[in-house]
């Protein structure tokens, strides 16, 4: 098993005809993901390396049975594309686009949660990889193999770093989920922890947080109350100065809130081990699960 994406995923990419949209959609297909359609308004009827392009997401759903959408359109159009996917009945919307206006994100999130029929991952995230099954997004899949460690992270490249450290120790992954570094993630740590807790393949959960907000603190409370599987955490930004936005729109230390130290303390208080470097995370995973058999 795995979570969110697998062999049943039928992917439509919005913004497929852009250079990045094309590049990563084809990489996802090469990995084995069933890519059934692309959408670019005005380019319906064309195809991208054999993938049919439609003018609307609704058409991609009707004609190709798409159930998962990858959003690759520029930031000013991204919320519109997310809502179009939602209205078309797409169940899983994975928004890669970085730089979406915060208020657009807030509205899109509120509408999706009110209607309750779709799950949004991201925006500003690297996507979801279930090794050996499907890759939706920009995660470099060659570094990861199937296994029993679930990874959830607010940061893309940090996910690869931590995932790679785990791979060096011989660990594989059930799924790797990038929830994104924006202020209003469609899916948060708690949602993904819930999915991993219920996933029989996942035996250990690695959670990568960063400064800003209180998502890690809330996750710590949730883990204590609802997660029986071992969890190892990593927090980026111990040396980040207060008041400076560190790249991600969500990564800012305001006053005494949102510091890496406070997050690590909150997690450790609930019995979650926190690695101080990505390498240490892999070592902690070893101490929980033992050296992987293969």
């Amino acid at each position: 098993m795995s979570i969110l994406v697998d062999q049943s995923t039928r992917l439509v990419t919005t913004g497929i005809t852009g250079s990045e949209g094309t590049f990563h959609t084809l990489r996802n297909r090469d990995y084995g993901t069933q890519v059934v359609a692309g959408v670019t308004p005005g380019k319906g009827g064309q195809n991208v390396d054999g993938i049919p392009v439609f003018n609307t997401i609704a058409e991609a759903v009707d004609k190709q049975g798409a159930n998962t959408a990858m959003i690759f359109v520029p930031p000013r159009f991204a919320a519109d594309s997310i809502l179009e996917a939602e209205e078309a009945g797409i169940e899983l919307i994975i928004a890669i686009t970085e730089g979406i206006p915060a208020h657009d994100e807030l509205r899109a999130f509120q509408i999706i949660s009110k209607n309750g029929r779709a799950r949004l991952i991201g925006p500003n995230c690297p996507g979801v990889l279930s090794p050996g099954k499907a890759n939706v997004g920009i995660i470099p899949a060659a570094f990861f193999k199937q296994g029993n460690v679930g990874v959830v992270s607010r940061s893309g490249t940090l996910t690869y770093q931590v995932g790679n450290e785990l791979a060096q120790q011989g660990f594989g992954n059930s799924s790797i989920v990038g929830i994104g570094g924006d202020p209003v993630p469609g899916t948060d740590f708690i949602d993904v922890l819930t999915l991993f807790e219920a996933d029989p393949e996942t035996e250990l959960i690695v959670m990568c947080g960063e400064i800003g907000g209180d998502a890690e603190e809330r996750a710590a409370d949730f883990i204590a109350a609802h997660v029986t599987k071992p969890v190892v955490a990593y927090i980026a930004g111990f040396t980040a100065p207060p008041g400076k936005q560190m790249g991600h729109a969500g990564a800012i230390v305001s006053g005494s809130h949102g510091t890496a130290a406070a997050k690590a303390a909150a997690l450790e208080a609930k019995g979650v081990d926190v690695g101080r470097t990505p390498t240490e995370v892999a070592q902690l995973a070893m101490s929980k699960l033992g050296t992987p058999a293969n």
Partner: peptide
């Protein structure tokens, strides 16, 4: 570095190795 999280982590690791970072720079996706 590329990606905010990895750059923040890099700052932490450099500091942990006894160095002092001069900046945070995310060259972006």
């Amino acid at each position: 570095g590329n990606g905010a999280g990895l750059v923040m982590s890099t700052l932490d690791v450099v500091k942990g190795a006894g160095g002092e970072p001069a900046n945070f720079l995310d060259a972006g996706g």
